[in-house]
Amino acid sequence: MTRNAPPPADSGAVRSAGSSGSGSSGAGRPGFLWAVPAAVFFGLFAIVPLIMVAVLSFASWDGLSDPEFTGLDNWRTLLDDPVMIKSLWLSVLLTVLGVAVQTPLSILLGVWAAGHQRNRAVLSAIYFVPLLLSIAAVSVLWRAVLDPNLGVPAHATWLFGDGNLFGTQATAIGVLVFVSTWQFTPLHTLIYQGAARAVPPVLYQAAQIDGAGRVRQFFHITLPQLRNSIITSVILMVVGGLTTFDTVLILTQGGPGSDTTISAYYMYQKAFKSFDYGAASAIALLLVLVSTVISLIVVRLSGYDKMRSTMEGL
């Protein structure tokens, strides 16, 4: 009892919550009141704004006068807006490229890091560093390293041509995909490392007795055993890719032109550069809907919401 007082658990709530359970273990269970402070706090700063986004997406608002209900106007305007359509395609393109580059790379690194050799542990610890840094720091760092005049490309024209990687759409997209890969590969590597370590060794022993080589073992044992992790990892990449914002703001500012203006960045521009909060909210809602659908899939696949059935039946 030395810490801050917890939310008061009044005995009535405890009893009623407990008695709905079965038998002897019903007593001494916390009442719902224990969860109230966290729920209220989270509701106020996450759920309420989310509801506001949904409402604002059907309104016209410049932030000064009162919001005006305009029905589906924002949505209609956005669907007619070539930059918006382009931004959706760019979001999809960046996401798909990110998955295509990061997945094979992090599977290989993860399976490699799953070995218990000392050098692998040391290297893995170094590989991990980019994940610790802020997206802002990483983007600023790469912007400086790839600077057309002072950075590495200016001194390696044999590799980079005129050295301005931010000058064309293809190279700018390449930079964005590369920087995200550099930063987030460790996260996915970690997922695959854990999964690879969980593969029963007996499978490999059996394969060795059958004379299967390293490559066959990888494709016929490791890869199928990683199936669930691949699903989780890809979904994380999709959600992360669709909401990429900081990287674009700092590395390309959506340019050249609007060639790397992906939806999340376009939303930011709509809101805080052209003060069209209704349209920005519609884009935001679209992003939430997509990532919610994807997250529900994760929850279903991992069985996380069914926790009660595993531990509490005892």
């Binding site: 919550a17 407990g18 709905s20 359970g21 019903g26 269970r29 916390p30 009442g31 719902f32 224990w34 969860a35 966290a38 729920a39 989270f42 509701g43 996450a46 759920i47 309420v48 704004p49 989310l50 506001m52 986004v53 604002l56 959600v239 909401t243 914002f245 999340a264 939303m267 930011y268 809101a271 909060y277 920005a280 909210s281 935001a284 809602l285 992003l287 939430v288 990532s291 919610t292 994807i294 997250s295 529900l296 929850v299 996380y304 919401d305 009660r308 509490e312």
Partner: peptide, 28 residues
């Protein structure tokens, strides 16, 4: 530990929260 229905709802709310990117609520 709680067996109340409300608790399950709160937990689902937080799971939903995993899917809300901060970009999405930045305007409100």
């Amino acid at each position: 530990r709680s067996r109340g229905r409300a608790t399950t709802t709160v937990f689902r709310l937080f799971l939903l929260g995993l899917a809300i990117p901060s970009q999405a609520v930045i305007v409100p």
